[in-house]
Design a protein around this nucleic acid. Structure first.
Lengths: 237, 237
DNA sequence: CGTTTCAATATTGTACGCAATCTAGCCACT
DNA sequence: AGTGGCTAGATTGCGTACAATATTGAAACG
């Protein structure tokens, strides 16, 4: 476990809820794959790295377990989730369902400001796409997910927003695991097209575009490696 | 807090994961309103009642907070959730969305056994509906929710199932808070109609029936009392 | 008499220690 | 040499003590 942040980030910024801070750091590390699936997250080790007690670490791990990002077994410990192809399918099926609802709700509520901030975000995505290096790739994955989360925000339903948060995080993990080209599939201006359709208040079209978008992401996955993964799971989990 | 179960139930059955056992007891108590919304759940008090340490209680409370059944504030404590009318709307909007997906997935996977166990469950609901007393009412609410959870099981998507679990629990809370007649709306054989449509593999009809069903439940609520509740919230929260 | 301050009390947040459980490595035995 | 069991080490589960924060009540002041 070669995490190199210690307490550089806002971990000790406000001394509020350190468990949440640790969770956020771990989640980022998992989502952009600095922590490989299957990695054991030892309470003592994590605690040492973040300079907090095991009590705090346990809180953070419990939260991550709820989000499905780690998998913890009693008396065994917590491990970074290693989603099976079947789980991957379920995640994307769920996304199709929920993003449909997000589009429908957002279409009725979005303001000019919303479109402006989405377009601002698009520029950022574009910039990252042209950058090179693994760091840019990681940020690109995160930015791509953030687009969907911004839409969920604009839908104005806190529950759907929470569900999306979980689904996006787990999607990133799946893409990291099974992605062929990384995220180039997310590449072309599909996000922009969705925004345009929404601005035209064409819900049908926005929906169709979103479904295509998700289908593209899923098509970039190589879910055949089922056996390989079951094996890995059997061996190290 | 007049909970009267102590350790009568399967709490100490297996000595595994007592936090989960406490969570389940508390969830039941919240969902069928033995614990009123807004009630403070003191760690020490809960611990004494269940004869476990605060550590275990904290674990249980954290889980309930994730499910949206309690609301905990730092250095203040945990309180049984007191959903606002707006939250109630969001919960039912989310249910409409997700149950649509459940119906679609279940329709393609359900077996004869599934229909049999659903019909078995219907009989149980029917029996409870004819019983009198608050205990029967509570069990009726739970059974009514279980119907939806059984369908979610049959959809074969663990993620949707988890979402439904949360939504059903929160719905029960909302119904308890805002329900006019209790659950008579859920009464007529709407569940049975849905099963019949599913068995005929008529997804469209099943969906329409489910949407009507949810609309009926929602129509039985009195969400006007917005001010009253904000006040209550302001006073006791 | 109302308001404000402050101290006493209660409650939550966190660290730590011990017990229970799992893991790994070694030795004996076939 | 391979297999099985056993012991030593490591890790998690949980209780408890102490620190940090909020709440309550009374007393002092305007």
């Amino acid at each position: 476990m070669n995490i190199a942040f210690e307490k550089q980030t806002g971990l000790d910024a406000h001394q509020e809820d350190r468990a949440r801070a640790v969770r956020d750091e771990l989640r980022d590390a998992i989502v952009d794959r600095r922590l490989a699936p299957g990695t054991k997250l030892s309470e003592a080790e994590v605690g040492t790295l973040f300079d907090v007690s095991r009590t705090v670490v346990r809180g953070a791990l419990q939260m991550l377990a709820f989000e499905g990002l780690i998998h913890s077994e009693r008396n065994k410990g917590a491990f970074v989730a290693n989603p099976s192809p079947e789980e991957a399918r379920q995640i994307f099926d769920s996304r199709r369902l929920i993003e449909r609802g997000v589009i429908a709700a957002a279409a009725e509520r979005m303001t000019a400001d919303d479109f402006a901030s989405l377009r601002q975000h698009l520029k950022e995505e574009e910039r990252l796409r042209n950058d090179r290096g693994t760091r840019a790739r990681r940020e690109e994955i995160k930015a791509s997910g953030d687009f969907h989360l911004m839409l969920a925000d604009m839908a104005g339903n806190a529950i759907l927003r929470k569900f999306m948060n979980e689904l996006i995080a787990r999607s990133s993990l799946v893409i990291a695991l099974y992605g062929r080209t990384g995220i180039s599939s997310c590449g072309r201006d599909e996000h922009a097209d969705i925004i345009n359709a929404l601005e035209a208040r064409d819900v049908e079209k926005a929906n169709a575009l979103m479904m295509h978008h998700i289908a593209h992401i899923e098509a970039d996955l190589d879910l055949r490696s089922a056996e390989t993964l079951s094996l890995r799971e059997a061996l190290q989990l």
